[in-house]
Design a protein around this nucleic acid. Structure first.
Lengths: 188, 188
DNA sequence: TAAGGACCATACGCGACCGTATGGTATTGC
DNA sequence: GCAATACCATACGGTCGCGTATGGTCCTTA
């Protein structure tokens, strides 16, 4: 138990590649043998690190949250300034980095797997709670801040989910600015 | 060409069942033999109506738009009153009927198929264009109305996409009312 | 340096689907 | 009443992926 690693590096390699495949082709194309081919090994390796395919799939949401969402929420806290400035920083960060790269694929998966749906809903809640606290900081009541946070967050979701063609960075920044103005013009 | 049906009834039966399966389990589970089993026939029937599985899948988006979205947009036009009243009517209709039952599954599919993505984007555009025209009727400039329509529509998308547990009718109506107020309080 | 464990390759049986080939039945036009 | 056609059942070969069994190769530790 002394030198026991919480997350094996090799296991995480499989998970990272699986997440990439999930993003590219959907969960039903995350299969053991094609995955092994992409990693340049055979499935003999896979069944060493995982009990079976289901074991891999059930480990994916935790890996997704750990590798994708945690860094973003950290970004929020390390920004200094008032709530509006924090929102602006978040919007710029999102517009530039597009950290939600895997979100759509996770949502697509969550449509058909209730456990995954719960995991994704928890992430949604964490993000909306952050937004709500910022609106409360800006002077809104908890109830009003909660709804404003929904509107705030759902715009993100809508932008990602309805996008079939890529949007330029300028356009994304323009929309972010417009959105910030519309949702915070009555505050401060 | 005289008595030729535009859409065969039997073909539509396969499409309707396929759409249902798409909603329940995702596009990769829309398979010929399970589908035939659900319809109580064998796949010999399928390959009479369709060239192959790909033929079925490529026919699904058109069927979806024809059977799901067209009726909703008709509903918008047949309502009389000002733009705000029309919006209220639309919100109530959506909150009660939930006509977007298949939207999530289509979006999930569109994530991994660019042709489907285009078809869904066209539906999104039609719906947002309708919303935009209502906001213009209410006095906004085309540019402002366009953005307001995005905010309006993305809230719908967000509500549907992030929902893991069902929401009561009362709650849905309450949110619809709140949303209408927040997005139209400065108009008229 | 021998033993044990970590890690991976190979080979096999199995089931789920796909698409085709072929034959059967029932209805319709003439 | 007889074809032609619409529609469906059955049977088959082929592919893909799962999971297991088994053996090989390092690398560590005593």
């Amino acid at each position: 138990m002394a030198s026991r690693r919480e997350h094996s590096q090799d296991r995480d390699s499989w998970l990272a590649e699986a997440l990439e495949m999930l993003r590219e082709r959907g969960i039903d194309h995350v299969k053991v043998e094609p995955l092994a081919k992409r990693l340049g090994v055979t499935k003999g390796s896979f069944y060493w690190h995982f009990k079976n395919r289901c074991d891999l799939l059930r480990s994916l949401p935790e890996f997704w949250a750990r590798s994708q969402t945690d860094p973003v929420l950290d970004q929020v806290e390390t920004t200094n300034g008032g709530p509006i400035e924090k929102m602006r920083a978040v919007l710029e960060f999102i517009a530039r980095e597009d950290p939600d790269r895997y979100d759509n694929a996770m949502r697509a998966w969550a449509q058909f797997d209730s456990e995954v749906a719960v995991a994704v809903a928890q992430i949604d809640d964490r993000r909306m709670a952050t937004a709500q606290s910022l609106f409360e900081e800006a002077g809104l009541s908890p109830a009003d801040a909660a709804f404003r946070a929904r509107l705030w967050y759902f715009y993100d979701v809508g932008e990602h989910v309805t996008r079939d063609t890529p949007v330029s960075l300028e356009e994304r920044l323009e929309r972010a600015s417009h959105r910030l103005k519309l949702l915070t013009s009555d505050l401060k």
